[in-house]
Amino acid sequence: MELRPCRPARPRRPAARRLERRGVRRRSPRGLTALAQYVQREQLTVIPRQHTEQITIDGHEHDVRLGVWVSNQKSRRDELNEQQLARLAG
């Protein structure tokens, strides 16, 4: 049996580029808008994972899976920059 040398690991992209590739930067304003709308209406910050919030941006309605978005933000908290963390906390 012949052993082949291992390939070197590929360098990881910076967190900002990984998030951009996933579309997080595009979806973040929608998620923040939906979160603000939900908190204002319900006076609650605990959001069920299944909850979908309908928001209107520039005359177009969007369904935002808010519960999933919040869960993802919490799990990726270490990948967010300071500005994104501040907006989420606000």
Rank of each mutant, 00 (worst) to 15 (best):
Q43E: 10
Q73I: 07
R41L: 10
R65F: 01
R22E: 08
Q50H: 08
H51G: 02
R13T: 08
R12P: 04
L35S: 04
R4E: 11
Y38R: 07
R27G: 05
D63K: 14
V39M: 13
V64H: 02
G23L: 04
Q43P: 02
R21H: 04
L80G: 01
Q50R: 10
E53H: 05
G59L: 00
P29C: 02
R12W: 09
L3W: 14
T45F: 14
L35A: 10
A36W: 05
V64P: 00
R13C: 11
D78F: 08
I47W: 07
R87Y: 15
E42H: 11
R7K: 12
Q43Y: 06
Q54R: 14
R4L: 13
P48E: 09
H51R: 11
P14H: 03
E2F: 08
P5G: 05
E20C: 02
K74R: 10
T52S: 13
P48I: 07
P14V: 04
E79N: 00
D58L: 06
P29T: 02
A89W: 15
R49C: 02
R12D: 09
Q50A: 09
Q43D: 10
A34V: 07
R49H: 06
T45W: 14
E53W: 01
I57H: 06
E82L: 09
R10C: 12
G31S: 08
R17I: 10
R65Q: 06
Y38S: 05
D58H: 08
S75P: 00
G67N: 05
P29R: 06
D58Y: 02
P48W: 08
S71D: 05
R41G: 04
V39F: 09
L32H: 11
S28E: 09
V46F: 10
L66V: 09
Q54M: 12
D58W: 03
I55H: 13
V24D: 02
L3V: 14
R22Y: 03
R49E: 03
R18I: 03
A16D: 03
R7A: 14
R10G: 12
G31M: 09
E79Y: 00
E20W: 01
A86Y: 11
L3S: 13
A86Q: 14
T56C: 14
V70Q: 03
L66I: 11
M1I: 08
A16N: 02
Q54H: 12
Q43R: 13
R30P: 01
S28C: 07
S71C: 03
R77H: 11
V39G: 08
G23T: 01
R22V: 03
D63Y: 13
L19G: 00
E82I: 05
S75I: 00
M1Y: 11
R49W: 03
G59A: 05
E82T: 07
V46E: 12
Q40T: 14
P8A: 11
L88W: 15
R13S: 12
G31K: 01
A9W: 13
P8F: 10
R22I: 05
L85H: 11
Q37H: 08
T56F: 13
L35V: 06
L85W: 08
D63L: 14
S71Y: 01
I47L: 12
Q50C: 05
Q84F: 06
G59E: 02
T33L: 13
